[in-house]
Design a binder for these strands. Sequence first.
DNA 1: TAGATTGTTAATCGATTAACAATC
DNA 2: TAGATTGTTAATCGATTAACAATC
Lengths: 222, 222
Amino acid sequence: MASHKISDAVIRRLPGYYRYLRDLEKIGITRISSQELGARMGLTASQIRQDINCFGTLGQQGYGYNVAELRAHIGSILGLGQKYELIIVGAGNIGQAVAWYPGFSQRGFEPIAMFDVKPDMIGRVIRGVPVYNVTELRAYLAEHPALIGVVSTPARVAQQVAQQMIEGGVRAIWNFAPIDLKVPANVVVNNVHLTDSLLVLTYRLHQMELAGQSPDANIPVD
Amino acid sequence: MASHKISDAVIRRLPGYYRYLRDLEKIGITRISSQELGARMGLTASQIRQDINCFGTLGQQGYGYNVAELRAHIGSILGLGQKYELIIVGAGNIGQAVAWYPGFSQRGFEPIAMFDVKPDMIGRVIRGVPVYNVTELRAYLAEHPALIGVVSTPARVAQQVAQQMIEGGVRAIWNFAPIDLKVPANVVVNNVHLTDSLLVLTYRLHQMELAGQSPDANIPVD
DNA sequence: TAGATTGTTAATCGATTAACAATC
DNA sequence: TAGATTGTTAATCGATTAACAATC
């Protein structure tokens, strides 16, 4: 039986499934068991079957899962298969890195404009994406609606930029500023804190050093 | 009572605590209750007290927590307070973004070298960081040990780069390639999958659209 | 002292794992 | 059919929340 509320824990694993299935497809594997997929991903077979069952009956007893079919299904759950125009505020390194992330366009993400405050950035066209003055953000959005906004500004202006995006019709914000953006309930936000992930790394490194390099067994990968 | 094994769930929250406490300190707040901190961070007061108690007795009944003291303590648990030299393989946008992330140096992270394969990158010095040919990686590490390695290469070479880093003495790998690096038990790895986080965002956006914009209440922020 | 707020134990909730009957 | 492997229920485990005595 399908689609009772999918838990957050499951949702966070979905992109991983998608990625692994895509890689399997690429190397020509067409079917896979929960056992085998689990071994590759570092999850239990049981968990994989539970996860997949959240959104319907996709496997076949005695056979396993069809890789292409499963990937397509997970992709559609993730909202792929449609095109997402996105705007980027903050044309620094992170903004540019995001704009040019390989594989972005093939997944339907299209950066249509960047915004910055620096005079030497404004007016440039970087790999086809024009950089506008951030003062033009509202006016631009009025003409060119975008569902997704990327915030790659310094923390101190991030909330205010988000505000303008939301007023301009942006419904999802991907935030790289080191602050947790607050948004209304009809807008989604994902705060990516790069430094946080580095600190988790140093924590583990530190622990390992304290423990005198003793292998602390399975360090979970996140 | 302190330090029984700190769970992974707690560890992942620590950088958040650190960040909020730092911001509080900046605006001059010197003491805070679990109640108030919870309200700001979107956690329950109970959870905050549980978390903090994992690593000792830091609060005072009837008073709360001393912001500066708590931040310093969490910082030291996270392994801050020492200097970390880091090398970056892949001098593209993400590599550069990482190298120049503001606040890096004030937290003790110092990029000492970048490596790439592109002839037009090799030999450049970008904001003080030299870019070498990746073929020189081993030789470089032999002379300049670094604890942390950043992998910001295409996926297809990432595992091999990690291998070389590890052989060169790197003990922690911060990976941005869209693949889960496998490392031996005495090395730590943190796989940052930017696309994964974007897909979680589109999932939620998609759900919200399906639900006809109805506010789906508390969208957790991660 | 009285009020506030922690530290900590117990209760609840949710997520993962184990087991196995259903079925391809 | 026999073997494989799912779908699904039950058991376990862990994390979060609630409650309250301890104490500043």
